[in-house]
Design a protein around this nucleic acid. Sequence first.
DNA 1: ACCTGAACACCGTTCAAGT
DNA 2: ACCTGAACACCGTTCAAGT
Lengths: 185, 185
Amino acid sequence: MVSTRDRLIDAATRLLDQGGPAAVTLREVGRLAGVSHNAPYKHFAGKQDLLAAVAARELFRQERPRRRRPDSKPGPDARQLMHEYVRWATRYPARFKLTFGSWSTGSDELADAASSARSVLVAAVERGQAAGDLPPGDPERLAALILAVAHGAVDLALNGHLSRTGKGHASPKDLVDDLFDQLGA
Amino acid sequence: MVSTRDRLIDAATRLLDQGGPAAVTLREVGRLAGVSHNAPYKHFAGKQDLLAAVAARELFRQERPRRRRPDSKPGPDARQLMHEYVRWATRYPARFKLTFGSWSTGSDELADAASSARSVLVAAVERGQAAGDLPPGDPERLAALILAVAHGAVDLALNGHLSRTGKGHASPKDLVDDLFDQLGA
DNA sequence: ACCTGAACACCGTTCAAGT
DNA sequence: ACCTGAACACCGTTCAAGT
């Protein structure tokens, strides 16, 4: 038995994927969930709060598989993490833009999920430094640099600002690899 | 004598800076420009086209000072270019998000301005490579890596996804410098 | 060529009311 | 506790008409 709240988030996510945030109208969300156009107000403060719930669920789903990993196995390295990040963002561009966009709502749920996701990357960077694959220095700051490249490359590519043709053509994954190659040298 | 068209773009830019794209209503744009709420339709195809004009003017203004530079002086180096990029984006976040967001309208004006701005960076990267400050390789691809860091760092910072406190704290400018330091080593 | 005023369809949000 | 239907204010866009 899936709750109305979950069905509302499902519907909002589907509409978001299809047509961006503008396509997420409360009327259509309600219709897809089988309720009236203002039933969402009984579960969320408004449209913004509904979208924040979508973003929070997305972050949680990204992080959960890594949390479940048994402690005996080390997690994936930072390069692999960024490859997954790029792959997810490319596949679900609207979710990517929403999740990493600015939330005017100061949702605790979102803040917690984001900081948790960041700590996974920092841990991977620390393992890379210990193995000599990454340069020394503050691991949080190096993680920020790595995330900035992945995030920026994806955002530029999604918006058509990466040269899409000719010798200069590089995919976000290529640019992430370029960075790690430079860091390893 | 400033044209109605320019006054409309001015008004739209002001509203954009104050409250983001949602605050740019054609009614308020018209009111600020001293015309009716649908006079903009005589100059632009619609709201989207008006916002594209704002973005195009912004790109043009960024690029113009560099084009006027006499050929005898070499342009600023890539690091300095990215510092200016970060400074502009931090000062006018709404313009940054609009200009580097996705334009559904395939505006030629925008595409030209964007590719022109990119070529300025590529030229700076080539000079850096010639001077031995940057590693060898395809300059377009290296320029894309550098732009990805600056763009990603600014976007993460604007959206509050860069750790704002503690030892991991790094500003977009810091991250740009980190990349250039790594590339120079 | 440029502009206006009325009108239409749509949306977020509120409210009174129902079970 | 959860939901509905009507209503309100607002917005993008279109249209007929004016100079």
